[in-house]
């Protein structure tokens, strides 16, 4: 298990001469085996943070440390699930997962990889859909395949960038439960960073929630629920209602500051 540290990280994009500041002096850390959600409104820098964690971008300033060592570029220890369209359209569901396995473990034979792939597809409820191409699968099924592929590569750090953002409410609930279930069954725990704009999802899934705004982490909340978690019980509890309120007020404060008045009620 790995510890993640983001230390004084800033990120600026240079888009044809226009310099755009995406992250500003950001600090946070994720303990080994911890599930941390980063929550915030669109454009606050959530996805930029995740792309730094994934290694797709390098911080302009500051350091990204894994277990105390500066990390550059992508790495085998990290697996990423994106919001959409990350499966290779020319591979079947099984082909996608097996391809991931063979990249992560080059010694695996094709037969072994395809057997393992079938196992993971079954885990995410896609038994019988192994030979379907992505275009033949619904959005939810594609995302389940992507999750299966990432899990099958057995990364120790799991990064999820609004993985259920483009999925309808019912499938979203199914996928959240699936994630809780699959992660609960994994032998070793993973260090997980989950980016979302959905408050309920963040409370339900994570150990800690980081509220992000103005290009850095503004507040931090410890989630008081033990695992395994029960959706119904959590959503009825007093702690949940308080936590939801606190998070909502973070969002409201942000909006109020942008509008520029104290008397704005939402």
């Amino acid at each position: 298990m790995h510890k993640i540290e983001i230390s004084n990280v800033s990120l600026t994009y240079n888009d044809d001469g226009t310099v755009y500041n995406a992250l500003d002096q950001m600090n946070f850390s994720v303990e080994p085996g911890e599930f941390v959600s980063i929550i915030g409104s669109s454009g606050c820098g959530k996805s930029s943070t995740l792309s730094i964690l994934a290694g797709l971008r390098e911080p302009t300033e500051g350091q990204y440390l894994i277990d105390g060592n500066v990390s550059h570029g992508t790495g085998r220890n990290r697996g990423v699930v994106f919001q959409h369209y990350s499966l290779f359209p020319w591979m079947t569901a099984e082909g996608n997962v097996a391809f991931g396995i063979r990249q992560a473990f080059p010694d695996t034979t094709e037969k072994e990889a395809s057997d393992i792939a079938r196992g993971y597809l079954e885990k995410v409820g896609l038994a019988g859909f192994e030979d379907k191409y992505p275009y033949q699968l619904s959005g939810g099924m594609q995302q389940r395949t992507a999750i299966a592929r990432t899990l099958a590569m057995q990364p120790e750090i799991l990064l999820l960038d609004e993985p259920f953002g483009a999925i309808d409410a019912r499938n979203r609930i199914l996928l959240q439960d699936l994630l809780l279930d699959v992660l609960g069954k994994e032998k070793e725990q993973k260090t997980i960073v989950f980016v979302t704009h959905d408050i309920d999802e963040a409370i339900l899934l994570s150990d800690r929630i980081l509220f992000m705004d103005q290009k850095h982490i503004l507040e931090e909340f410890q989630v008081p629920f033990s695992r395994p978690r029960n959706r119904e019980l959590i959503f009825q509890s007093q702690e949940y209602i308080q936590m939801r309120q606190a998070l909502l007020s973070c969002f409201f404060r942000g909006i109020r500051e942008k509008i520029g008045g104290e008397e704005v009620y939402l």
Binding site: S51, A54, G55, L56, T74, G75, R76, R78, G79, V80, F82, H84, Y85, S86, L87, F88, W90, M91, F99, G100, Q103, A104, M153
Partner: peptide, 24 residues
């Protein structure tokens, strides 16, 4: 997005060529 996904899977140059760019 497809490229990012391939990058985060740490594909070798050969895998990138034959399994991503060529079929694309």
């Amino acid at each position: 997005k497809l490229l990012d996904s391939a990058k985060t899977m740490n594909l070798s140059a050969a895998a990138m060529f034959f399994h991503v760019l060529w079929p694309y």
